[in-house]
């Protein structure tokens, strides 16, 4: 079982993930239409790139009004996303596995740091969950799929934590390890097909709106609006 989930299934998951996200990007760009969107994407590419860069800069960093207005939620969100992306990629155990299979490796995080990052992801996830259940503004927007997506994103971290610490929670280390790998694979596969596609579509959307502002909505005339 372990050989299967960490071998062929992992390969398939990575393939679906990579092909899937590339397809999402390609389809997104192909679906842009200068006249329907009313943005001269190619004619004013320079202004567009400037606007896109500004948009990404202000939102990848906490340099926007939304962060100023909602510092706690945005703080948690930034932390969640940073840890969620960094921890698995630079986790020693993951890098070792990849080195064994494909003979490539990169820098790793100290286990202690990765452990804290995992806890941060889980804690942030619980914060999001509670907010969904309690805040009337979020409640009215929430659908079943929001919970499923949150569960898919959190599962690899929760199971990874259990496996790493060899916690005896109804199953042995080996079982938890297999469950953890499966959860990771489910997440990879889910990314292109669910709301988790914002993994890449966030960038597409921000770049698009940045171009819209940079090209049309005052990019040429304004002092640069941080949208």
């Amino acid at each position: 079982m372990y050989e299967f989930v960490s071998g062929p299934l992992a390969l398939i998951s990575f393939a679906i993930f990579f092909i899937g996200i590339i397809a999402r990007i390609v389809l997104y760009v192909k679906g842009l239409d200068w006249q329907l969107d009313r943005v001269a994407y190619s004619e004013k590419l320079g202004a567009g790139i400037k606007g896109a860069a500004r948009s990404l800069f202000h939102w990848l960093l906490p340099l926007n009004r939304t962060t100023a207005n909602h510092p706690i939620f945005m703080g948690v969100t930034y932390l969640f996303h940073i840890c969620l992306v960094i921890a698995p990629i630079f986790l020693l155990a993951h890098v070792v596995l990849i080195e064994e299979s494909w003979n490539i490796s990169w820098v790793t995080l100290p286990d202690k740091v990765a452990d804290y990052m995992t806890l941060a992801v889980i804690a942030a996830g619980i914060f999001f969950l509670i907010r969904r259940l309690v805040d009337p503004n979020v409640k009215i927007l929430t659908t079943v799929s929001d919970y499923i997506v949150l569960a898919i994103a959190l599962a690899p971290f929760i199971t990874g934590y259990i496996a790493y610490h060899q916690l005896e929670l109804g199953a042995g280390y080996k079982s938890w390890l297999i469950i953890h790998i499966l959860c990771g694979e489910i997440m990879l596969i889910a990314i292109p097909f669910t709301k988790l596609s914002h993994f890449v579509l966030f960038f597409c959307s921000r770049i698009q709106l940045g171009m819209d502002y940079g090209i049309k909505r005052g990019g040429a005339k304004g002092r640069g609006i941080a949208w």
């Binding site: 997104y28 939304t66 939620f73 927007l141 914002h198």
Partner: peptide
């Protein structure tokens, strides 16, 4: 014919976070 990737993506990736409320 007219609801293309920009609009569909917006509808799809909305995180239902309610930050637009105020």
């Amino acid at each position: 014919a007219t609801c293309k990737s920009r609009l569909r993506t917006w509808l799809e990736i909305c995180a239902h976070c309610s930050l637009c409320a105020d």
